[in-house]
């Protein structure tokens, strides 16, 4: 009973480990974060070039 349980655990762990192999998605979201940072800071720069206002 305990041997079967161990095997089941191993299979489940491997299965879980596989589930986290998503390099494509990671690339996509890192590209998202990079574009976000560029766009965001570009806008602060554009704002800084206008008149002063409070």
């Amino acid at each position: 009973m305990s041997d079967e349980k161990k095997v089941a655990d191993i299979i489940r762990d491997e299965h879980n480990a596989e589930e986290h192999h998503t390099p494509g998605t990671m690339t996509l979201v890192l590209a998202l974060l990079a574009s976000f940072a560029v766009y965001y800071f570009a806008n602060w720069k554009a704002l800084a070039d206008t008149w002063h206002v409070r």
Partner: peptide
């Protein structure tokens, strides 16, 4: 990967959160 991304996204949200108060104090607009 999920955990890594949540950490990165959270860090970015902290940056976003700090930006407005920073500009309120130091920015000219």
């Amino acid at each position: 990967g999920e955990r890594t991304w949540i950490g990165l996204a959270l860090a970015w949200c902290v940056v976003l959160s700090v930006a407005m108060p920073y500009w309120h104090l130091r920015g000219k607009q």
